[in-house]
Design a protein around this nucleic acid. Structure first.
Length: 493
RNA sequence: GGCGGCAUAGCCAAGUGGUAAGGCAGAGGUUUGCAAAACCUCCAUCCCCGUGUUCGAAUCACGGUGCCGCCUCCA
């Protein structure tokens, strides 16, 4: 089977076929930069990063574009609260976005367009929509006329006559008194500026773009009229993506995107993690906490669930993910720890261990299983099972080498296995690098002296003392292995 | 009220017609002064409930039950 993806637009899993044979254009709805990112954002961007990495591994050149929404009511509000400017708030949160995402090993997008950089393109689309009577100006605002777009609702599966205005329980912030819109589900393309707000001149008066139009404009400007894949959180299906389609397709008469992919939400105790509920954990709070999980454990936590399903975040589930990562990590570090003693010839090369430079040779059922899982709508939990089987095997081999100083397994077979694991893990963005074996405080001679003291204590049956020494060494990162015949071996880590 | 999704072991989670992957947690054994580390072994006769289709269903159909998301803040 080749790659199949679940397309929200058709509500079916479909074979993936890009417009051009070897290239994929991919647009991911980014964040509104008014605050730190939370775990929900982390999930979304980890998932799309993984899809991107997989497409690259399949041989596609992926043009991955992700926007920053840097003009918005919430950013303005934040700027007022902090007696700052919209621009400063946006810049600060864009900087922290990059810090957080890079820690999670999310690749940088090819381009990061911003709404404020595309005012001209936005105005151009709005102008065209007004010219064709698919939008209308009203009191300095411009609204999109949803009833003129026959397929409005095709993405979210809604029909205008079945929708209930205000069902979400919020007052329409765009037109609170209902005076300007001609129809309740018309949405703002352009908003008249209020005093003191940043504004751009336009044929309809000074103002700023609505939320949805920026994505339409940026996609068109950076990727073209029709793209292969458009991604985002499932909470963006309606209205955001529905409106993007309406605007873009009314203007270009071309499909905006061939594949619409949406990730499930991160839940906390069964309900969605969100800013408004206040039940969110920011990425930096999570990663900087005491006993924080490794960023790779967070990545693993996300990928252990299928991307379209809800994912419950609890302390227990994160701890389990950390323990799982520790196992996987041991497999990934195998080559660094044992490659040299196994007689691998390239362990000193600068490219050693870099998945990019490694090919997977020979037949590999592991690779086949991995590919089958990922081809099935990015079944990352299934793909991870393949990694764990490789990693657990390598971990066992490594332990045998540590304890017995040899293994019956062919070094080149181990090499092959480690290489396979490393390459496949990297496709999922999971990477472990050997930590510089920093000075652990104790020299070999000091450790030998401690072991001798412990041995003497043991011979004197002073087990309290011998255990104390063992714990002391353990705290210093030195692990003792008691062997038959009173021999004691040790290793660091 | 409308639209959509989910329900598999203590927990997380694959599997969509051929007899239950993987992870976490747990148990037993070997070893040991006891441990640790390690190695070996075990851990769902069953997939929310009911009815049906079938030689065969966790997987399909119908009917329930429960939970969640969206319906102009949202990843």
């Amino acid at each position: 089977m080749s790659l199949e993806l679940y397309n929200s637009l058709t509500r079916r899993q479909e074979p993936f076929q890009p417009l051009k044979p070897d290239q994929v254009s991919m647009y991911c709805c980014g964040v509104t930069v008014y605050d730190y990112c939370h775990l929900g954002h982390a999930r979304s961007y980890i998932v799309w990063d993984t899809v991107r990495r997989y497409l690259i591994w399949l041989g596609y050149a992926v043009n991955y574009v992700q926007n920053f929404t840097d003009i918005d009511d919430k950013i303005l509000k934040r700027a007022q609260e902090q007696q700052s400017t919209m621009q400063e708030v946006a810049e600060r949160n864009i900087a922290t976005y990059f810090e957080d995402m890079r820690r999670l090993n999310i690749l940088d997008a090819v381009e990061y367009p911003r709404a404020t950089e595309h005012i001209a393109e936005i105005q151009q689309i709005i102008g065209a929509l007004i010219d064709s009577d698919q939008a209308y100006a009203a009191g300095g605002d411009v609204y999109y006329r949803v009833q003129r777009f026959p397929s409005y609702g095709k993405l979210s599966g809604r029909k205008l006559d079945q929708m209930q205005a205000g069902a979400s329980g919020r007052v329409d912030p765009e037109d609170p008194t209902g005076q300007r819109k001609q129809y309740p589900f018309d949405f703002a393309l352009w908003k008249a500026a209020k005093p003191g707000e940043p504004a751009w001149d336009s044929p309809w008066g000074a103002g700023r773009p609505g939320w949805h139009i920026e994505c339409s404009a940026m996609i068109r400007a950076r990727l073209g009229e029709t793209i292969d894949i458009h991604t985002g959180g499932s909470d963006l299906v309606f209205p955001h993506h529905e409106n993007e389609i309406a605007q873009s397709e009314a203007a270009t008469h071309r499909p905006l995107a061939n594949y619409w992919l949406h990730n499930g939400m991160v839940n906390v105790e069964g309900t969605k993690m969100s800013k408004s509920l206040g039940n969110f954990t920011t990425i930096r709070d999570l990663l900087d906490a005491k006993n924080a999980p490794d960023p790779m454990a967070v990545r693993l936590f996300v990928l252990q669930a299928h991307y379209r399903k809800p994912l419950d975040f609890t302390q227990e589930s994160m701890t389990a993910a950390q323990n799982s990562w520790d196992t996987l990590k041991e497999g990934l570090l195998f080559g660094y720890r044992f490659g040299e003693s196994l007689g691998w010839t390239d362990t000193a090369d600068s490219s050693f261990g870099q998945a990019d430079s490694m090919r997977i040779d020979g037949d590999s059922t592991a690779v086949d299983q991995f590919r089958d899982a990922m081809n099935d709508d990015i079944n990352s939990p299934g793909a991870l099972a393949v990694l764990f089987e490789l990693a657990k095997d390598l971990r066992r081999e490594g332990n045998i080498i540590t304890h017995e100083h040899q293994t019956a397994t062919d070094p080149q077979a181990l090499r092959q296995q480690w290489q396979t694991l490393t390459v496949l893990a990297q496709v999922l963005g999971l990477e472990a690098k050997p930590e510089a074996e920093a000075e652990l405080g104790l020299s070999d001679a000091e450790i030998a002296a401690k072991i001798a003291q412990r041995k003497a204590a043991k011979q004197a049956k002073n087990f309290a003392e011998s255990d104390r020494i063992r714990d002391e060494l353990k705290a210093a990162g030195v692990l003792l292995i008691d062997k038959p015949g009173g021999l004691v071996e040790w290793h660091r880590g």
